[in-house]
């Protein structure tokens, strides 16, 4: 019969937690690298519509966003309930788009300007009138590459 002998003083030896920080740091770095901090504060109600034929938007640095939707209740007393355009952190009108696109272009390298995409994040229930106006304005400033932001439809 073999004897089970305990070495040392008895009591289970503590598991070494020395590698725990390494593991946690690894996770930490992963999240740090993948994190995109939310850049703009949403001032509008935004429920993105669903679609099936979606494509991923490549090169986030080359995308400028235009948000359209009803102002959230906090701002409704001032801006009303009609759909409004939001550029960066501010409410804007259709005529501000020209300046917005130009400043987006100025911030980029000249060679990258033709690759700039404008992503339209528009609320599901918004009417097309304002979207059409925005599209006309984008045509005027030759910002022709657009992307209607949509979520993947769950089937």
């Amino acid at each position: 019969m073999a004897k089970f002998t305990r070495k040392g003083k008895g009591g289970t030896p503590a598991i070494s937690t020395a590698s725990l920080p390494d593991i946690v740091f690894m996770l930490l770095f992963f999240f740090m690298v993948t994190t995109v901090m939310r850049e703009v504060e949403m001032k509008i109600k935004l429920r993105i519509p669903e679609a099936t034929q979606i494509k991923k938007l490549e090169k986030k640095s080359l995308v400028s966003y235009i948000y359209i939707g009803e102002p959230i209740p906090k701002y409704q007393s001032f801006f009303g309930t009609e759909p409004r355009i939001q550029l960066n952190d501010k409410f804007a009108s259709v005529s501000d788009i020209r300046q917005f696109i130009e400043s987006e272009r100025a911030a980029r390298d000249e060679a990258e300007v033709p690759l700039l995409t404008t992503s339209l994040k528009v609320d599901d229930e918004c009417e097309m009138g304002i979207v059409t106006d925005v599209k006309q304005e984008l045509r005027e400033v030759q910002a022709l590459k657009i992307n209607y932001s949509t979520r993947k439809k769950v089937e």
């Binding site: 994190t35 901090m37 657009i146 992307n147």
Partner: peptide, 14 residues
């Protein structure tokens, strides 16, 4: 703080 959403959408050309 992470938002992992990948931007997707319908790409069109005006």
């Amino acid at each position: 703080t992470t938002t992992m959403d990948v931007d997707t959408g319908l790409t069109r050309r005006l």
